[in-house]
Amino acid sequence: MDQLSPLLDRFALSARVFYSGTLCGVTTFEATDEAGHLHVVRRGPLQVQGADGRLIDIEEPSLLFYPRPTSHRLRAHKQTGADVVCASVEFGGGRGNPLARALPSLLVIRLADVPGLDASVRLLLDEAFERRYGRQAIIDRLCEVVLVHMLRHTIERHVASAGLFAGLADSRLARAIHAMHEQPARRWTLEALAETAGMSRARFAVNFRETVGQTPLDYLTDWRIGLAQTLLRKGRPVKIVADEVGYGSAAALARAFTARLGMPPMAWTRGEQRRAGAQTD
């Protein structure tokens, strides 16, 4: 079972490379409203400093990934510097995206520890440090490929001890999670989800909460609201969105949406439109 593809199909993962070259001294990256940051370190040494002030030393070619907006600094030697590629990353659905919520605040992965990643990173670095036609489009897409490899690694190596990735790493819970992802409009009950997982109702409820960190029906609600956000961004009418994500009416979606986000769908959509307009000015 491919637990990752439905997530990537429903939410548009996008990366935009904004720097490639040699960093010298201290470089600060500010948190934005929606974007995380990916840093591909070709050559160090390099230190990473988060908002808490903790320093992490990077000695080997590595990936550094902040999946959520986070202010941080990269510190390199003033003379020799460090070769890096830096990209902003957005998960469709913003901070409510289940992938963004489930990942640790910072992932640090040595390239040598991810089999199959070498070829993609080599292509990315070759393109990023050249100036050829179509370069930006290629390096952006290659960054997205690298990110998918990272997500696969996170699931397969049980990098996350709790949350969505921990649930996907459990074969029984993964069946129920996959079913919710594939059929968000179905009238799911706890009993139906437990049956899908091949577990008793009580054991499923306890295992899901202990592993994922929330109840199955709370997870389902978050998944539906995240999907609703993605569809609303595309201009879909609220009534149609309500049907597609499992709410019987626009009013029912508005109640659930307001409970999760503090405002009804139309107000949220207007805010997103204003934000998008401000970014293009």
Rank of each mutant, 00 (worst) to 15 (best):
H149Q: 09
D170G: 01
R132D: 08
G271K: 10
S105N: 08
T211M: 09
L55N: 04
H158D: 09
A35V: 03
R132M: 06
Y66R: 00
A166F: 04
D52C: 05
A169K: 06
K239E: 15
A169L: 06
E182R: 14
L103D: 00
V206S: 10
V241C: 10
V241G: 04
V238R: 15
S5C: 00
A137T: 14
G167C: 08
P216L: 15
L231E: 13
D83W: 05
R75L: 13
R73Q: 06
R203I: 08
D118V: 11
H158F: 03
R131M: 10
L111S: 04
L103Q: 02
E195W: 12
Y247F: 15
R203G: 11
V108H: 15
S62V: 03
L111G: 05
Q49P: 01
A15M: 00
D33K: 13
R122K: 15
A87F: 01
G226D: 12
L147T: 06
R275F: 13
I177W: 05
L106T: 08
V145F: 07
E60L: 01
E34N: 13
L103C: 02
H158L: 02
L46H: 00
R42A: 07
S88V: 07
R270N: 12
Q79R: 11
V108C: 06
F91R: 03
D170M: 05
P6T: 01
E60Y: 02
M263H: 15
T196Y: 12
V148T: 11
S71D: 00
L231A: 14
V17P: 00
T27D: 07
G262Q: 03
A252F: 06
R10Q: 13
Y247L: 14
S71E: 01
P104F: 02
A51S: 09
D222I: 09
E210K: 15
L46Q: 03
E191L: 04
L8C: 00
A87E: 00
I155G: 00
A112L: 13
A197H: 13
G92P: 00
R42D: 04
